[in-house]
């Protein structure tokens, strides 16, 4: 069979393979996490963000962005939620986290490690989600009553995820 002129061949670089590998691990964690029952709807540990944190520390912000956004899009394909409100909430959270991580990763590494990144990203995540919920889904001040609850969950899971990422990075430098 002869190749038509419309064929094009992708030449994935080593970095592309690395992105795909890490995104696959993040996806695995997302699926694993969906099996954990949550006592409060909307509160999830966000285990996949551990992968984002590790990629951020090892390969920098650009690759972390790739891994994070690939995870959101491919995860929504796995769960059949592409372009549903849940997908846009994930996307809003991920984008806000990434914007904050761009700034946070410039903090001096001597004092600020993965735990800082994780907590800041978790807060940015709920801030982005709540903002989207407020302007798009439920424009009612009543949802602000949930903010302390979500912020507490972000602090808890942000710290724990950050510790796991820091532990992993310390084990395998």
């Amino acid at each position: 069979m002869t190749a038509s002129t419309t064929d094009f061949i992708l030449h994935p670089s080593a970095e592309d393979h690395q992105v795909a590998r890490m995104a696959a691990v993040a996806l695995g964690l997302t699926v694993l996490e969906s099996a954990i029952p949550s006592p409060i709807p909307g509160v999830k540990p966000g285990l996949a963000n551990i992968v984002t944190l590790i990629v951020l520390a090892r390969y920098g912000w650009r690759m972390a962005t790739w891994v994070s956004l690939l995870r959101v899009v491919a995860g929504s394909l796995l769960f059949g939620s592409l372009l549903t409100p849940g997908f846009f909430l994930s996307l809003a959270g991920a984008l806000c986290s990434l914007v904050l991580l761009a700034a946070a990763s410039r903090l001096p590494a001597r004092w600020f490690g993965p735990v800082s990144h994780s907590v800041l990203a978790a807060f940015a995540h709920i801030a982005g989600q709540m903002a989207l919920v407020f302007v798009w889904l439920i424009p009612h001040a009543g949802i602000l009553y949930l903010l302390p609850l979500f912020a507490a969950a972000a602090l808890l899971f942000g710290t724990v995820n950050g510790l796991i990422a820091a532990h992993y990075l310390a084990q395998q430098p």
Binding site: V115, Y145, L155, T159
Partner: peptide
């Protein structure tokens, strides 16, 4: 042991975060 995993700035950020959670709770609840 988590102590070596937390740098001084990390502790500061976690404390600031806890303060913010407390402030939000006080403000909204």
């Amino acid at each position: 042991n988590v102590a070596p995993l937390i740098r001084s700035g990390d502790a500061l950020i976690v404390l600031l975060g806890a303060g913010m959670v407390g402030g939000l709770g006080w403000h909204y609840w």
